[in-house]
Design a protein around this nucleic acid. Structure first.
Lengths: 261, 261
DNA sequence: CGCGCCTTTGAAGGAGCTCAATTTAGGTGG
DNA sequence: CCACCTAAATTGAGCTCCTTCAAAGGCGCG
């Protein structure tokens, strides 16, 4: 349970013997790209790049986006990746019966659209959940920089690997967890990501609808709502519309692993 | 439905406008590493590396493995990646209540253990489902080669991206599909991978148990068995223990998207 | 201020899980 | 080569969790 907690809450460095608990629906986290200052391109890299420096060196342009605006669409030719700068984003694919499956939520500093490299076309559509800004990074440029600097390259590989790990966590969530466990996991993960961004990890606003959460967690929107209400009744969280408070993360974490609520 | 079919069956090149259908539980496919011949390290790379050449240039050693043997274990320090040469493999994580969640099945030419890069420790345990052989690739060597050759680097990025896409497909499967759709998707994907490897895509042996399939698909082993029996009754497939025949892949594909069986 | 979208809550039904018993296959030793 | 033994697979029955359908309440935006 503690291993799980650490996993859930510590996106990057944590090492777990048991990773069953490593449900980390959070995307690749980049502490960078948060202010507009890092637009220059370094010619000489320090030996050990932080993620911030890594991104700062890459960013060529920023783009303002409004709520519901589309960053890239499934099927589009792939040429750029994006880093959420401010605001929040979701990625999704459409099933042929028209429903959308949300594949990720992204907040500040997180890297998006890595799935497009393989087929050279985007596999997901990414839209803004609220007004914000994204860093636009040319993938060709990224690879060029990458080949020039081993540490730079390694940083990038880590970020891609992190996306793989993130999705593995989601597979566990979708494969074995109950509804209340999924929601609790989701909230704790989100809380930690807000905390890492400098916001409160104990109180925050959900930037997505119940339906989007449900799609992401493999649940109906009604179930998400019901579970939130139930957790609220148990005083494990406090819910008022989009506003969530987690008075005791440890207590909330305890519901993960419980077969029944 | 056709888009879905193409996606399901064409692991690499297929480009879909709608990717909702892109459920591709198959891992990164490498046509290489299938015979023992490609052990040399090229000094000069051709401009356009095939996957075969890509892997051939990397492989430093091969290793025989027996059924149930562990390739790498969750928590182990990460230093190598593996390519299934012959035989088949599964990757899984353990939930803290001791059950295992299978995260992937791998057959010839498919790249494994990319999840370990991020934390420098393996996140999954990989074991052999039958006696076989793996190519062992030093990741440090891979990165070194990668930085020397842009096309080499790009090939590797594509493979990592493919793993991300694969897991996205699985998320869709776990998130929105019914039991019969999951099983049909799984069988069609496996069939295509066997076909691509030169084996029959219409008749093959499952190298994993019902329980392992169930874990991978987020179903109980009984449900997997029931669905297989039911598909068999409908003459959509023929099942006899581990031996599966798919007389008409197109017909089987049609069950994907049906809300009820 | 009203309209639309999101959310909440209830009730009923169903898909799949769990528990349990039986059958089958595969491996081992006599 | 056969009998045994264990693990895997099949099949059934009841139950549970979650979905679906439905209706009402709330918030924000034009």
């Amino acid at each position: 349970m503690d291993a799980r907690a650490r996993e859930l809450l510590g996106p990057p460095a944590a090492v777990a013997q048991r990773i069953g608990s490593s449900v980390s629906p959070g995307p690749s986290h980049l502490a960078a790209c948060l202010d507009g200052g890092a637009r220059q391109t370094y010619r000489e890299f320090p030996m050990h790049l932080t993620e911030t420096e890594f991104i700062g060196a890459l960013v060529q342009s920023k783009r303002r986006v409004r709520r519901t605006e589309v960053l890239c669409e499934a099927g589009d030719p792939f040429s750029h990746v994006y880093v959420a700068s401010s605001g929040s984003f979701k990625s999704f694919v459409l099933t042929e019966d028209g429903r959308q499956q949300v594949t990720g939520f992204y907040i500040g500093g997180e890297l998006m659209a890595l799935d497009g490299i393989e087929s050279e076309h985007h596999r997901v559509t990414i839209t803004a959940l609220e007004d914000g800004e994204v860093c636009v990074i040319s993938f060709a440029h990224l690879e060029e920089m990458s080949s020039k600097t081993p540490h730079f390259q390694h940083q990038f590989h880590k970020l891609m690997s992190r996306e793989i790990v993130r999705e593995q966590g989601l597979m566990i969530l979708l494969g074995v967890m109950r509804a209340h466990e999924r929601v609790a996991t989701f909230l704790l993960n989100l809380a930690e990501r807000f905390r890492a961004r400098g916001y409160s990890g104990t109180q925050f606003n959900l930037c997505m609808t119940r339906g989007e959460i449900g799609s992401y967690l493999g649940l109906s929107l009604e179930t998400v709502s019901r579970v939130l209400s139930h957790l609220n009744d148990q005083a494990l969280i406090s819910v008022k519309q989009r506003c969530i408070a987690i008075p005791d993360a440890h207590a909330l974490r305890a519901v993960i692993g419980q077969r029944a609520l």
